[in-house]
Design a protein around this nucleic acid. Structure first.
Length: 425
RNA sequence: GGAGAGAUGUCAGAGUGGCCGAAUGAGCACGCUUGGAAAGCGUGUGUACCGCAAGGUACCGAGGGUUCGAAUCCCUCUCUCUCCA
């Protein structure tokens, strides 16, 4: 949510910023509602004041044993008027709120203008793209020949875009998860966190998935208020909802491993082959809650934490700065890490690291107390995948494949793999 | 599944229709006191919105209702605790 002050005081500026982020603000409607709101709010508060004063005088008169009937008569009409004003105010406020909830975050100045991922800007590349003297397979072929990935089983048990893993490949996924968690906890100072995989509506409103993106989510049922989490960002960031954080506890750094569930509505033909785009996948998520003055630096730092996993696994990748059209609704700026997949001969997203500034914090009412002013201030939230485990599994398989179809276990993962050095049939 | 109790400010905890944004205590901050500390004393200490300000409005788990007036009464929901199955 944007700062309502900004919206009221500089609506033109906000409108321009919204257009940059692919949204529109109808100033005519907004200004009209704002004017009405002001009038009716003042009117309502005056009526409330009047009622409070008279009610108080009735109380005092009664205490003195005076006749209160004339006073009662004089307020009889006030109640109806007040109720009407309150109802009207409520209506306007919910309309204004709907507008506010539908507006995306204002993009950072250095976000390049662009329509879609074609316009993202490559900031740096890491690692050499491996050369092979044999025919490279993708993870689907590798997984099938190693009898470790079974799409038919996933489809039978659940449906399309589900998969089963078994044997050493299932273990490899677990190894990756453990490795990532350990690295973020031991070397990067994150606090390991276990959270619910089902969340309520308030949490999704807080991080910005609702009200606009309900179709991307799995809802448990119509009578149950729960949704499956699309990312650990939702439960973890909501830890600070309605909280005022002590200055000594800042910054908060959480890491959580969870499954993620996405309906992938609108991705019909895309990535139908393989494990790239699944309804269910594992992810290790990094979340930081910081002071406003620290958020840019924290965003860079968190991105580097995600990068360090790729580096430790020796997987080539590139860092992309997302353009305006590709940056998510709640983000002010997003870096994507794209890992090299030999099977596709392409870089594919494996992590998305975003700074939300105070956009989520305002919805969440997440604040910290500034000791200099003694006042609560909104925090800034930053999160990123560190990393998407399913896609990392793919990347390891494809990058570490050998001529005989086996997969070498990266050195960093060997302690987690019972010391085996290679995955073979 | 059944029966009961409860949810109040940073915390503990009073308040069962009006003078309650809310006693009291603890904590915290500042000041006094002291050689220094403890104790003691004094003052202050929620959030949001409107307003230049004075001031006003809302908020006592959430949402509705009754009433001139609700933390307090009624209804629904959520959560916590105790007991029974």
């Amino acid at each position: 949510m944007l700062d309502p002050q900004l919206l009221r005081n500089n609506p033109e500026e906000v409108k321009t910023a919204m257009q940059r982020h692919g949204a529109d603000l109808d100033l005519e409607i907004f200004n009209a509602l704002e004017t009405q709101r002001k009038d009716i709010q003042v009117k309502t508060q005056n009526l409330q004041n009047e009622r409070n004063k008279r009610s108080k005088s009735i109380g005092m008169a009664k205490a003195k044993g005076e006749d209160i009937q004339p006073l009662l008569d004089s307020v009889s009409q006030l109640g109806d008027e007040l109720k009407a004003a309150e109802t009207e105010l409520q209506g306007i406020q919910s309309k204004l709120q709907a507008i506010q909830l539908s507006l995306p975050n204002i993009l950072a100045d250095d976000v390049p203008l662009g329509k879609d991922e074609e316009n993202n800007v490559e900031l740096r590349k890491w690692g050499a793209i491996p050369q092979y003297d044999f025919d490279v397979k993708d993870h689907v072929d590798l997984g099938q020949s190693l009898a470790g990935i079974d799409f038919e089983a996933g489809a039978k048990i659940a449906g399309s875009r589900f998969v089963t893993l078994s044997g050493p490949l299932a273990r490899l996924q677990r190894a990756l998860t453990q490795f990532m968690l350990d690295m973020h906890v031991d070397q990067h100072g994150y606090r390991e966190t276990y959270v619910p995989y089902l969340v309520n509506k308030d949490s999704l409103l807080g991080t910005g998935q609702l009200p606009k993106f309900e179709e991307d989510l799995f809802k448990i049922s119509d009578d149950s208020p729960y949704y499956l989490i699309p990312t650990a960002e939702v439960p973890v960031t909501n830890l600070v909802r309605d909280e005022i954080i002590a200055v000594g506890d800042m910054p908060l750094k959480f890491v959580a491993h969870t499954p993620c569930f996405r309906s992938e509505a609108g991705a019909y033909g895309r990535d139908v082959r393989g494990m790239i785009r699944q309804h269910q996948f594992e992810k290790v998520e990094l979340v930081q809650v910081v002071k406003a003055s620290d958020s840019e630096q924290a965003h860079e730092q968190l991105t580097q934490h995600a990068e360090s996993i790729l580096q430790a696994l020796n997987l080539p990748y590139r860092l992309m700065l997302l353009c305006s059209g590709d940056t998510g609704f709640s983000a002010t700026k997003t870096y994507d890490l794209e890992v090299w997949l030999p099977g596709q001969e392409a870089y594919r997203e494996i992590s998305s690291c975003s700074n939300f500034n105070d956009f989520q914090a305002r919805r969440l009412k997440a604040r910290w107390r500034n000791p200099e002013t003694g006042k609560p201030e909104l925090v800034h939230t930053i999160n990123g995948s560190g990393l998407a485990v399913g896609r990392t599994l793919i990347a390891v398989m494809e990058n570490y494949q050998q001529a005989d179809g086996s997969i070498k276990v990266p050195d960093a993962l060997q302690p987690y793999m019972g010391k085996i050095t290679s995955i073979t049939l």
